[in-house]
Nucleic acid binder design. Sequence first.
RNA 1: CGGGGACUAGUUCAUCGGUAGAACGCUCGCUUUGGGAGCGAGAAGCAGAGAGUUCAAUUCUCUCGUCCCCGACCA
Length: 407
Amino acid sequence: MKYSKLFPKTIKQVPIGAESVNHQLLVRAGFIHQEMAGVYTYLPLGWRVIEKISNIVREEMNKVNGQEILMPVLHPGENWKKTGRFDSFDVLFKLKGAGDKDLVLGPTHEEIIYPLLAEYVNSYKDLPLHLYQIQTKFRNEPRAKAGLLRTREFIMKDLYAFHESDEDRDEYYKIVREAYLRIFKKLELPVLITKASGGTFSDLSEEFQVVTPSGEDTILICSKCDVVINKEIAGKDCSECGGVIKEEKAIEVGNIFPLKRAYAEVFNLSFTDKKGEKKIVSAGCYGLGISRVMGAIVEVSHDDKGMIWPESVAPFRVHLVGLDLEDKSVMEMAEKVHKLLEAEGIEVLFDDRVGVSAGAKFADADLIGIPYRIVISKKTTEDKLEVKKRSEKETKFMSFKQFLEIV
RNA sequence: CGGGGACUAGUUCAUCGGUAGAACGCUCGCUUUGGGAGCGAGAAGCAGAGAGUUCAAUUCUCUCGUCCCCGACCA
């Protein structure tokens, strides 16, 4: 990809109203554009990051036997009336369809997936069943804030798992819990598994929290036994060992909990067991905020110059900066290195602009935060590429071959 | 939903009663090229919407809208 063709370009000024770090940097670098409070367009660089996060999540969901589906954004209001959430779900977007029909923009998908499964699941042989989707959710938050951390429209992965028994459900819960840990490790996002309120469903519920001052949740960490609890449900001292606790601000990037039989009863999601008896399905729900993860990564991984993307989700792997490009031989060398890298399957953003100062190009590279920067100029040759990692200070010189070994 | 702040060029901001200005960005030309280069020329605005006060409103008053911040809220 040539930077000269990339939409859009970076901007120097901090956008008005953008106070949180993720909002400022993502807008300035051209990853996202705000349309209204809590609603954003993902621009080419930002969308590449979203896709990479999604693919990491997808891969791990498939490993735990998840089958990907895509449910509708638009829900029949009727289903929400059945569960009582048409009136009780306070951030529900409601609208009228043709014939004055009540419709809902989906903030979560129990009201779709339960009726769906009730139609198809009959026997214990149909279980367990693990279905997930990566999709846009809508929640009419009273106050959207902090860039991608709290929005009215957001991208989320939600996995719904259905089981014959609570034992089977709880066993699968542990499996997904491990998958989540692998996901956040790949995303290089340090998470603390936090005991949380189960809402209306359960006492057992865990959140994956990223500690950062910009977080809006408060979690309590026990200094003695390493238990982490959301402040919403905790007392003064550690409930496990009575140890002293410390408070931290954190961002919730995932939440897993058993749904038990709450919706299965409403929508009559039942099956016939081996003995021929009718039973109600037991379920678990596993959420992960894809777009929020993007904001959280920026919050924990940046410096005063810009973002520092983990290699797993960076929009490109190499930022090739061409200097002295009005010199024909330098331009040819840069174009050659660009092609060679792409031939190796390495994603490259090539700053091919002519007449833009070196300082401006370096500043853009730092802001965008791609892991490896290669500079091509009068001072370099193919056997002496100038390489710098975004996360490190030192610049190293190496041949193309040597670079391929480290990248 | 309560409290506070803001809305003027594409962006960030000045003007604070007398019909609008800078910086950045953009276009053209020349010079320059290792940490956001210089000079010159140019394009760019119904001052969020509406009403009121006034000879005159971007400026004062009110209403509405939008955005941000602090709370409340956050299956």
